[in-house]
Amino acid sequence: MFPFTIEKVTSVEAAIAAASSGRRLIAGGTTLIDLMREEVEQPQQLVDINALPMSEIRIDRSDLVIGALARMADVAAHPDVQRLQPLIAESLIEGASPQLRNMASIGGNLLQRVRCPYFRMVDAACNKRNPRSGCAALGGLNAGHAILGTSDHCVATHPSDVAVALVALDATMRVKGPKGERTFPVEELFRLPGDTPHLEHTLLPGELIVEVRIPWGPHSRRARYLKVRDRASYEFALVSAAAALDVAEGVIRGARLAVGGVGTRPWRMRAVEAALIGKVPDRRVFQAAARSAVEGARPLSGNHYKLELLPPTIVRAFEMTGEIA
């Protein structure tokens, strides 16, 4: 690990100033410390933002608002979260082990870096870590990698679970930076790798995430997160699906679907959603709609199985919305 300094800030303004001057912000540290130990990340100056007043979880009208520093564990256990947006709680619990949930913040979770093993080995080729060095995953171990949104430069999946749920639920985020405040959909935070996989998100220099806002809708209560993986816990998703339905008088009025483990960013599936509107929620309807999920997918040498796993995962997630969590 490279030597580094760490200082604490107590105001958002000071954090913005620090970030603007190139210093790295640290909250829970569950990603950053790992990567510093491997020397994938080499920040020389860290700024601890844990003292900032951004960990509140509140209800604003019917929207759920989660401060960027709220811990995964606290959000998942919050009664309002469980009552209003159970999908968020479920995706958080599936998203990490208890130790990690106790440390990791919501903002940090969204900005966590990819789990591609080659990204995490400094002597391997990786365009994300070392632009134009190549992508070792293309000809190597890529069973866990993406089939959607990939490029010839990067095929890593975005690892967050709660981000998938937030994208499905049309969550927005409020960020603050040297040029003031702005609000935009969480979905727009994530960039596709293209030929610049080292650029992962759309935050401007010095900007920090303040809070995420999840609007309530009639689909919010009937929403489930299904994470498919080879072991029961402590593993990233092979495929996951965040599904929500608004059903009235036996007919689907609204549908929300985002999937994880298959895209280079949390992947909203609007075509599948549209195919469900006006239909009676049953397995055949879900299966017909899920067929379009793999359109345009580009499997790699080791992840063809995701083409077969994605549609049934979507079907099961929609089925689960009719079951009690």
Partner: peptide, 28 residues
């Protein structure tokens, strides 16, 4: 769960990490 994956190009154990080399956890 358990398998050590070697990269055919350079013999590297690619999943030499507790998050990537799967072993049973309590839930399993």
């Amino acid at each position: 769960m358990e398998r050590t994956v070697l990269d055919a190009r350079d013999g590297r154990p690619v999943n030499a990490h507790m998050a990537d080399y799967l072993m049973p956890v309590n839930l399993d």
